[in-house]
């Protein structure tokens, strides 16, 4: 019962934060919640299907630009419509991209996703008339559950209704993902992660399951991307840049991809740590690089692996080579 209690306590703490924490810290929680949704999806791919994507900023970008386009060009302000449209567009783009990428594994999969991410980045950067190029596209304030909230000061809107709306999306996304990873589908993904050749002899179609996982993770990334938009207020190509893909992989490793909530914890620590380090030293990427190296070497199970050694840590250690499952030779 410890696990559910901790999760419940965390949700309550997040819900109470606007009442007790400073506005500054509450505002930092908004990107955290958006990234939490992104990472729940990314970890379906990484932690459960064993595929490392270096191009998921593509889908974050799709979600964010969907919101920006709908609010700026089509005068659609409903966040519910934006989230649904982002999810649908994310799935639509993920289908052909995933169909190509999941035929490959390991570094080849990672490089292909990176390539598609860069194609999208270049598209939004260069098609200035459509996307606003490097200046981006405004993400106008969306309405929440049919309420316009235009008259409300921006900060009040973000730390009030928008904060709780984001929390609601995170809770729903978490519950959905929890069901997915504990479903027969989730079990099949884990068999593919551990030993694809064996999974195939059991009649589990490896490529088909990887494709489904890819599309689901893209939908989560697009929804998270759409949530990122309103706090920023302007969507630009940096959201789709490869370093952004690297950041979310970093968050996943930081928290630990071997546990369900690891990447969510990673997102929280990443955002607050980045904010703190940036305020202390100008070379924050240097510090972050050192932290990542230390995690890979000393805590392969991530932060949650330190708290909960055992299965998670053993699995992560296995990925480093000790007792690793049979490798798939196909590039």
């Amino acid at each position: 019962m410890t696990g559910p209690l901790v999760v419940a306590a965390a949700v309550v703490a997040i819900a109470l934060a606007p009442l007790v924490a400073s506005t500054y810290h509450v505002l930092l929680m908004l990107p955290f919640m958006a990234y939490a949704v992104v990472l729940l999806g990314l970890n379906l791919l990484l932690g459960y299907a064993g595929l490392v994507s270096f191009g998921h900023a593509l889908f974050i970008g799709i979600g964010a630009y969907t919101g920006a386009f709908l609010t700026s060009h089509f005068k659609i302000r409903s966040l519910e419509v934006i989230l649904i449209a982002a999810a649908a567009l994310g799935a639509l783009v993920a289908a052909p991209v995933g169909a190509l990428c999941v035929r490959y594994v390991k570094i080849y999969f990672g490089m292909l996703t990176l390539a598609f991410g860069m194609v999208f980045y270049t598209f939004v950067l260069k098609f200035y008339r459509l996307t606003g190029g490097d200046e981006g596209t405004p993400f106008l304030r969306p309405s929440l559950l049919g309420r316009s909230l235009e008259a409300m000061p921006k900060t009040d809107y973000l730390v009030g209704p928008y904060y709780y709306y984001s929390l609601g999306v995170v809770v729903v996304a978490t519950l959905c993902m929890w069901r997915i990873v504990h479903s027969p589908f989730g079990l099949c993904l884990k068999t593919i992660r551990d030993n694809p050749a064996k999974a195939e002899t059991l009649g589990i179609g490896v490529t088909r399951f990887r494709f489904h996982a890819f599309v689901i993770s893209a939908v989560y990334a697009a929804v998270g991307g759409a949530l990122l938009g309103p706090p920023i207020g302007n969507v630009d190509p940096t959201l789709a840049y490869w370093t952004h893909s690297g950041n979310i992989v970093f968050m996943t490793l930081l928290g630990g991809f071997t546990s369900f909530f690891g990447p969510v914890v990673g997102a929280f620590v990443f955002i607050y740590l980045q904010n703190w380090v940036m305020s202390v030293v100008p070379y924050w990427r240097l510090i972050f690089g050192a932290i990542l190296a230390a995690i890979v070497i000393f805590a392969p199970g991530g932060l949650l692996g330190l708290v909960r050694p055992g299965r998670a840590a053993v699995r992560a250690a296995g990925r480093r080579g000790a007792g690793a499952p049979p490798a798939e030779s196909r590039p």
Binding site: L187, C188, L202, G318
Partner: peptide
């Protein structure tokens, strides 16, 4: 050929899930 990070029961469940064609049940 095993699934190193699955339990014995999960391994057998995976085979049964595949046989019954229930692998695509998401929720």
């Amino acid at each position: 050929h095993i699934f190193p990070d699955l339990t014995v029961l999960e391994t057998l469940q995976a085979a049964v899930v595949a046989r019954l064609g229930r692998g695509t049940r998401l929720f």
